[in-house]
Design a protein around this nucleic acid. Sequence first.
DNA 1: GCGCTCCCAGTAAGCGCTTACCGCAATAAG
DNA 2: CTTATTGCGGTAAGCGCTTACTGGGAGCGC
Lengths: 367, 367
Amino acid sequence: MNDSDADPHGLTIYDVARHAGVSIASVSRVLNNRNNPRPETKERVLRAVQELGFVPDGAARALSNRFKEIVGVVFRRALTGATDGGLFEDENESLLFEDVINRGIEVAARHRGFDLLMSSVPVSDRYPQPRISALAGKCDGLILHDQVLTAAEIQQVALRTPVVILAGTAIERGVNVRSDNATGMRALAQHLVVDHGYRTVAYLAGHADSPDNLARAEAFERAVDEVGAACWTGPVWQGNYMAAGGAAAIRAVFDSGHPLPRAIACANDQTAIGVMRALAERGVRVPAEVAVAGFDDIPVARHLHPPLTTIRQPIHQLGATAFDVLYSLVNGEPMTEPEIVLPTTLVVRESCGCPPESPAARTGRKG
Amino acid sequence: MNDSDADPHGLTIYDVARHAGVSIASVSRVLNNRNNPRPETKERVLRAVQELGFVPDGAARALSNRFKEIVGVVFRRALTGATDGGLFEDENESLLFEDVINRGIEVAARHRGFDLLMSSVPVSDRYPQPRISALAGKCDGLILHDQVLTAAEIQQVALRTPVVILAGTAIERGVNVRSDNATGMRALAQHLVVDHGYRTVAYLAGHADSPDNLARAEAFERAVDEVGAACWTGPVWQGNYMAAGGAAAIRAVFDSGHPLPRAIACANDQTAIGVMRALAERGVRVPAEVAVAGFDDIPVARHLHPPLTTIRQPIHQLGATAFDVLYSLVNGEPMTEPEIVLPTTLVVRESCGCPPESPAARTGRKG
DNA sequence: GCGCTCCCAGTAAGCGCTTACCGCAATAAG
DNA sequence: CTTATTGCGGTAAGCGCTTACTGGGAGCGC
């Protein structure tokens, strides 16, 4: 309480050493749980640390042992940096999917003492590489969500730092973690066409250049085709992974005077939200007149009206896996496989036309 | 392409200097936009940086100039770190409110070249201070969401690092950023009791020790009282800011055989979600039989059924403000005010009993 | 034409840690 | 009692940057 209760910023391992009457090496060893120091010394150091409220500086530590224990996470953000309430009202929901992934990353990261350095890239930013490089300088490795960089840019970044990509395309020096789009979409096609008997279905696409979107579209169209129904496609059925995109597509269909299909499979849940809203606007009943399904199973999906039938990705695990892979990369372990695929499952709720679960079943309690 | 296309990890300012035929000082100066180097030198350096793909190490930089350009953000997480899909299904929605704040922080941070080091604390973690201290070592300052640390713990952390608290209580060495709970709640009380004429209303509380909750409860009760209606309180009307808490409270009221009030003001939107779900389970119509209102105006609020009447906080700005304040603290500017209060507004939708907006009005297009 | 100033660029110190290396004391072995 | 062995703890080098200090060359005034 007397000798060095100095200014907050200048409190170093030297202060602790002096306070405890040992050398800085001993302090460091205690702090890093080396077995050298004998119990008595250890306790003295710990007491000093406690009394001074010492916290070792992460930068110095990193500089010295090559580990920052920080993983960078980059994702696209729908809206620009406007800070007033009006602009991003509608699309702010898009935070859902990425954020669940990020939570998964975080949980896994903490097991290893890593923290997450988050950085989002506004869609308006056409040339995000400099920012991402700067980020790379602050962390041990990078996890990139889809739509952040082009494959070529990723390659370049991966040259200098370990990289894991989420739902992108496999690249040379990085690992791609994604979920099994095809299986999920096949199950959905089966459910809509065979179980429900819908003869006309459409796939409302996500970003045209998203690998996930491509895989979903292809698998769905093929599966629908195989069971003998027609899958509508074309420029009208193009969304952008966001609610507004889904709504706009539906409105365009209406305005064009074309009929609606009996069921719409959306590229993701966000899109389905927009679709359902637009259908409600025009007085179309879901699922009685048009059935709707999503992809992702984001948390809100079950609260929609009607509850959304969707394909569940193990979103949380997607993130956790991405981190685990990156961690081994950071530790210099060799890359075993360029791509890791996680399973998906069809989650049937009501928007496809299935009957509601009973409340009893839902709460899992008495009748 | 020849001399030092060495291993990715060992690529330092020395390599760049050699490649460009200058000294490391010049490289550093160019990289930091000092005006010293003349154009020709500058260009030589930049070319070398480009060719080598050099990215300066953040740790070394931080060590040398005292700025990590990283701000730590800590928030409570509803669920534990289980990585399987089953456990956190229901409450994962709780990510909404905090994440919008975090986005606000991030946007503001990027204007200053800062990145966000995110760290969530599971509710199960009763003693998170060590983790937070470790985090403090990796950043220039900390933004703490509510419910992360006790006031005493915050005081202690604030001793060693600049701290801004979100929706907490003002402390000695940190700044508290919150929104104007009282004004919002008064407007809501007015709307429910005076405009709609509901005579019995309840406040379904959030965490008992949350300053926000306390302020909301008090303001609401007083305002309801002033306009001559009865505000129900008591242990049954205790939630926990989460959907499950709201639902549980409603079920408890049912099971106890007590009547329901005509309107329920919930501590936040999450709680309102749970309440509406529980009411629906029991066949109670909202708003015809019981009106429901929330607080926050999280993005999902408008997609609920019925759309939720709620009090909008400038969530995004809350975060942005928190960062701006922290930034000035980090730069050694003196603390001007211990607390910053942002305005709230009542957002009337349908769950309070108001008529739906027309679709035309909603899309802002033709009739 | 010589010295003064100014601008640019290089040298080196130091940020706060970790850790290799070394010395010393205590213990074990002969 | 002497020597080999072990283990604790101190000294100092160095991680990759930034920057104060310094030196050298060019331009200026007298």
